[in-house]
């Protein structure tokens, strides 16, 4: 589904990603772990299309399409969705506006008509209940005045409504207490399906107790230096990142 090959990215002339390779297949959950500054967030931002990142080499293919040639909104409509580490506050834009406009944009791209109002209302009520969000949240401006946990739940709510093919979650666990973590993990786990892939970017192993990955990758200094199954995450938790780095250099 997602194929990243030899990806090199610079930010303000500083090399951040230095030849990153990653393949994610439908139905899989991948976790990318690594120390601070390794380039974890850069990877998801480049895939989502954030400005300020220059791809100097390499390719990103999503279902065979060249992602780097696509507009930001085209990527989302194709099914690539990024959950932000720091969800952006959008004063005045009600959650419900965002959800409906985004859903309709996606449907339009697929050649479907706008979602009928009753169906939409049923959908958003159901999904907000699943994320334990009061319906009044729908009337509130996107993320404005939300607590850290509410913002992250809101990111997952958007995923549940928009049903991406590839959900990328950047440090979705940061700033969450254990209860919020469980709600978020439950939301993410409900997204798991044979046709969908999930890419978790995280600093800590703790999230992976709640969302069990199929593959774990260690990103250090702009490259994936080690991949393994979920046991690798536990080992990282116990031993830190140093040994991986030493091993990769050796």
């Amino acid at each position: 589904m997602l194929e990243v090959k030899d990806l090199h990215v610079t930010v303000e002339d500083k090399a951040i990603l230095k030849g990153l390779d990653l393949t994610v297949n439908a139905g899989e959950v991948h976790a990318i772990m690594g120390p601070n500054g390794a380039g974890k967030s850069t990877l998801s931002a480049v895939i989502a299309g954030k400005e300020g990142y220059e791809v100097t080499q390499g390719t990103i293919l999503f279902e065979g399409q060249d992602v780097l040639e696509m507009e930001i909104e085209e990527r989302a409509r194709a099914g690539l969705l990024l959950g932000f580490q720091y969800p952006i506050e959008i004063p005045g834009v009600k959650n419900i506006y965002l959800l409906k406009a985004a859903l309709n944009a996606q449907r339009e791209a697929r050649g479907e008509g706008e979602i009928p109002a009753p169906e939409f209302m049923k959908l958003v009520r159901e999904k907000s209940a699943q994320m334990q969000m009061d319906p009044s949240f729908l009337q509130r401006a996107v993320n404005e005045g939300f607590s850290g946990g509410e913002k992250k739940r809101n990111e997952i709510l958007q995923m549940l409504v928009l049903e991406p093919k590839l959900a990328m979650l950047d440090e979705i666990d940061s700033g969450l207490d254990i209860d919020a973590m469980k709600i978020v993990a439950q939301g993410v786990n409900s997204l798991r399906s044979a046709g969908r892939a999930i890419l978790l970017v995280t600093h800590y192993q703790r999230l992976l107790n709640h969302i069990e990955p199929d593959r774990v990758h260690v990103l250090v200094d702009g490259r994936i230096v080690k991949s393994g199954d979920k046991e690798l995450a536990l080992e990282l938790e116990a031993r830190g990142y140093e040994w991986v780095l030493e091993e990769s250099v050796a």
Binding site: A48, E73, I90
Partner: peptide
């Protein structure tokens, strides 16, 4: 940008 990442 945030809205565009949702397909808008």
């Amino acid at each position: 940008y945030a809205l565009r990442t949702r397909g808008i």
